[in-house]
Design a binder for these strands. Structure first.
Length: 891
RNA sequence: GGGAGCGUGCCGGAAUUGGUAGACGGACUCGACUCAAAAUCGAGCGCCUUCGGGCAUGUGGGUUCGAGUCCCACCGCUCCCACCA
């Protein structure tokens, strides 16, 4: 093999990237003529380094975008930067760099890294959330929320991250009470903060989930759980005095089981409940105070542990059960949460496990009021019986089944004035204030006489000052900037103070996908006609970690903006692909717990700690710095090229599954691309070219006004009609069958559920078949095979496909070719192997005419050697014929 | 406790939706080429076998001519939510 014929990605990839940029190959067409396709990746935070998770995300979206273009869609495939956020500030504090400069530099370097991947992104539509031409509209949208009554400020118990020195939204605190970013244990603080009223859309956000058929079930379930709608009733328990007379106060509880109200043996409040102090009787005051003090010193985590001891004390007061008039004691307990429902619960030990444990611990009565349907036995055996059933000991409701009893008791409560039906949500309003510098300023002014005054829209953006001095760890420097803070009230002109909190960065990312439709608009965030033309996003691709946060907020934004008349659709993302993570090989000394870098492991077949010589644990885990298991995309591209990296990532695992990065497999992927290179080299060495074959039929598709249009080259579309020789050799027929089988299979794999891994394997099969038959094929058949292979390869390995397309003399870019359509005639075979089964077990094969009918197949099968041998001359009792597949003979 | 999903060779993973289990690739073994190595090319590669075949998709049942696929029970793993009343 000559030196010149080696596949050298480093020589071809950069060249094509530049050529495509000059040709404007990736520009978004201005007109969409109803065939638009919006392919979107979740935009990255510009940390400075591209990691493999990014690469996987963007390569998947790129294949989808490229395929859509070749299928005749007008494609929007943009990219941008989620550029506000804490790492920039931390860099400023740690290294003295200015957050904005640091961010801009990172963007420049990551953009360069992205370009190396050969992504067909329209960079003219790039958005950067920390630039005022973008955040001006984030502020404008905030004012829309404010005007709609969906943004408000209130004093609330909030999650405070002591490390990042800011508040967090509920969604940003994990199950263990830790911050999503810093990992610090979150504290509770009372602060006056800005909220968005996402709860006003709870029903819609929940009810529209079933519409999202293109979303993974998992994500929809997670959102449904997060919204957490439960319907039940609020019931009022009147507080009575020592003589049993109403004191005028009432405790309202929320319950999903109003049917169990006759089983109430106590009512219990959260220790923080506002009525606790007032209702505590003097004899219980010391006990209650001590208990509240104890609880307040517990962490949220301890407090909410499910198997917690369920401590509590009576506060002395009693309440009247409105259903049966019984007087029951009022308690406070640590297992009741102040934030959920009314902060008060009716205790029904027989039918709620928590109440049961509480009652047992504190020797409160347990009275069963529900029994299993169709049984007079009591299912109640030591634990609470929480299933629905039939009511007993429930007065006029005896004998009703739980569902109707719920309705009847709620109705009675409503008519008698002691309760009402109630739908309760787990979802809380979205806390968006952050006491940080590097974020979008909240555009309001606080005036002593006018209150909260929105900054007039013509004064937007409220610029975030750059080059500010950082006083030290944590605190935002904005509040110290007198020039910024002191302003005249836009309303009355009196001296007023500017809001210095910034917005949660999730505000910025809740609408960026809308801005891409009209990124340069200086009059509006986007024009309605444009946003409605491109959106909803046809295919969104990103990590599962945003299943709740970003995806829920974006849905909320879309619905609000729809209600404001700014756009005309209900849901932002029609289809969602949540790609799996990329895992790196990880070496761990299980004795010391330390992680070892792969480079320090001398012999991977016998991995040992370089210091102690101990045998290491080897496994795959999500790439992270602390585990030394990361693989740098740039290094991989330098070594093998972007096409190999792309092919490997797509081939190694289905897109939604985790992917194990394995260098040996990358090597194998590189070899496959080399084989394709040699295959085409061999063909051109023999003088084959697409021009000699197609001649003038291949047309340049550069458009009249120098702009590239989406009118695709007719080459691929005409393949099926090409004048093939009237007689094909067996090798040629095999080759054509392989080509058109691959076209069918790959087209299927790229439809609906994306199966890139099997699509790549089909490319491998095709190249294997070509290796076998190409040399024996005539020019038209070989040309069809080569052209098809390169067109099918183009979305996956764009540089190599383009290079070889040009070498073969193809006209125009390979990326402007129309996606091929399989020729059914090529798939037809004269004979097919028929499987002969005896009683369902495969016993042999039989070559039969492909068009044989059932009767013929049965006859051939019965006459076959296999049948003679296994049936020993007896006629089968049953024959099942599946044409084209098998005959099953049952003796 | 509630929910979602998964269990297939040494490994990553296929399997037209009930029809030849293990496609495609990696690793490995053998062979060709080479002084040699790499690269490349060819062959083999689930387990057992008396070479007829038998057994195999987490386990045990069931439905069916036929089950990785459908049903029931169980075991194991992953993720999400969780004292939410």
């Amino acid at each position: 093999m000559t030196e010149a014929s080696r596949y050298r990605p480093e020589q071809i990839e950069r060249r094509w990237q530049q050529a495509w940029a000059e040709q404007g190959l990736d520009h978004t067409p201005a007109e969409t003529d109803g065939t638009s396709f919006y392919a979107l990746s979740m935009f990255p935070y510009p940390s400075g380094n591209l990691h493999m998770g990014h690469v996987r995300n963007y390569v998947i979206t790129d294949v989808i975008a490229r395929t859509a273009r070749m299928r005749g869609h007008r494609v929007l495939h943009p990219m941008g930067w989620d550029a506000f956020g804490l790492p920039a500030e931390n860099a400023a504090i740690e290294r003295g760099v200015e957050p904005g400069d640091w961010t801009d530099r990172n963007i420049a370097s990551m953009r360069e890294q992205l370009r190396q991947l050969g992504l067909s992104i329209d960079w003219d539509r790039e958005v950067t959330t920390c630039h005022s031409d973008y955040y001006r509209w984030t502020q404008w949208l905030f004012l829309q929320f404010l005007e709609a009554g969906l943004a408000y400020r209130r004093e609330a118990t909030v999650n405070w991250d002591p490390v990042d020195q800011t508040v967090l939204a509920n969604e940003q605190v994990d199950g263990e009470g830790r911050s999503w970013r810093s990992g610090a244990l979150v504290e509770k603080r009372q602060l006056r903060q800005w909220f968005l009223k996402i709860t006003a859309y709870a029903d819609q956000l929940l009810d529209d989930l079933p519409k999202l058929e293109g979303w993974p079930e998992r994500v929809r379930t997670m959102q449904a759980n997060w919204i957490g709608r439960s319907s039940g009733a609020e019931l009022d328990f009147a507080v009575v005095d020592g003589e049993g007379q109403p004191s005028g106060e009432a405790i309202t509880v929320f319950t999903t089981r109003p049917d169990t109200i006759f089983g109430v043996s106590y009512v219990v409040l959260a220790p923080e409940h506002p009525l606790v102090a007032r209702l505590t009787t003097p004899d219980q005051a010391i006990t209650v105070e001590a208990f509240c003090d104890l609880v307040s010193r517990q962490s949220d985590q301890e407090r909410t542990a499910e198997d917690g001891p369920k401590r509590g004390v009576p506060i002395g007061a009693r309440v009247r059960n409105p259903a049966n008039g019984e007087l029951v004691p009022l308690w406070i307990a640590d297992y009741v949460l102040a934030e959920y429902g009314t902060g008060a619960v009716m205790g029904v030990p027989a039918h709620d496990q928590r109440d049961f444990l509480f009652a047992r611990r504190h020797e409160l009565p347990v009275r069963q009021v529900i029994i299993p349907e169709g049984s007079d036995e009591h299912a109640f055996e030591g634990g609470a019986w929480t299933e629905p059933g039939v009511l007993i000991h429930s007065g006029r409701f005896d004998g009703l089944a739980s569902p109707s009893a719920k309705a009847a008791i709620t109705a009675a409560a409503e008519s008698e004035g002691w309760g009402r039906g109630k739908v309760q949500y787990r979802l809380r309003d979205w806390l968006i204030s952050r006491q940080r510098y590097w974020g979008c300023p909240i555009p309001v002014i606080h005036c002593a006489s006018c209150g909260v005054v929105p900054v007039p829209t013509e004064q937007l953006p409220v610029e975030l000052p750059r080059q500010v001095a950082f006083s030290g760890k944590g605190a935002s420097p904005l509040a110290q900037l007198e020039d910024l803070v002191n302003v005249a009230c836009p309303c009355c002109g009196q001296p007023a103070r500017r809001e210095t909190d910034t917005m949660d960065t999730f505000m910025c990312s809740s609408w960026y996908y809308l801005r891409y439709s009209d990124p340069h608009n200086t009059a509006l965030p986007f024009e309605r006609s444009k946003v409605d033309r491109w959106l909803p996003v046809d295919q969104y691709v990103g990590g599962i970690e945003h299943a709740i946060l970003h995806l829920l907020y974006s849905r909320f934004f879309t619905k609000v903006l729809r209600d404001r008349g700014l756009l005309g659709f209900d849901e932002p993302f029609t289809r969602l692909l949540t790609q799996g993570m990329v895992q790196g090989i990880t070496y761990k000394n299980s004795h010391s717990g330390k992680y070892i870098a792969p480079a320090d492991v001398a012999d991977p077949t016998d991995p040992r700690d370089p210091n102690s010589g101990e045998l290491l644990e080897v496994f795959f885990e999500k790439m992270s710095k602390s585990k030394y298991n990361g693989v740098d995309p740039t290094a991989v591209i330098d070594r093998y090229g972007a096409d190999t990296a792309r092919m490997f990532i797509l081939f190694k695992a289905p897109p939604e599954k985790d992917l194990e990065w394995d260098d040996a497999d990358v090597e194998g992927q590189f070899r496959f691309l080399q084989r394709i290179w040699r295959l085409v080299e061999g063909a051109t060495d023999r003088g084959l070219s697409l021009q000699s074959w197609r001649g003038a039929a291949v047309q340049d598709n550069s458009d009249r006004d120098g702009e590239i249009s989406n009118s695709l080259s007719p080459l691929a579309a005409q393949l099926a009609n090409f004048a093939l020789p009237s007689e094909l050799s067996p090798a040629e027929r095999d080759l054509r069958r392989a080509v058109h089988t691959a076209i069918t299979a790959i087209s299927d794999d790229l439809d609906g559920d994306y199966q890139f891994n099997t699509a790549v394997s089909e490319l491998m099969k095709l190249s294997n078949a070509m290796g076998e038959h190409l040399e024996a094929a005539s020019v038209p058949v070989a040309g069809e095979a080569l052209a098809s292979l390169l067109i099918l390869l183009a979305p996956f390995a764009p540089h190599l496909a383009e290079e070889l397309w040009q070498k073969l003399g193809g006209t125009g870019s390979v990326h402007r070719q129309r996606w091929p359509v399989a020729d059914p005639a090529a798939l037809i075979r004269d004979t097919i192997p028929l499987v002969i089964q005896i009683k369902g077990k495969v016993r042999g094969n039989l070559e039969v005419p492909a068009d044989a009918d059932k009767a013929t197949l049965e006859k051939l099968a019965l006459e076959s050697e296999v049948a003679l041998r296994w049936l020993e001359g007896k006629a089968p009792s049953r024959v099942i014929v599946v044409p084209g597949k098998l005959v099953n003979l049952v003796p």
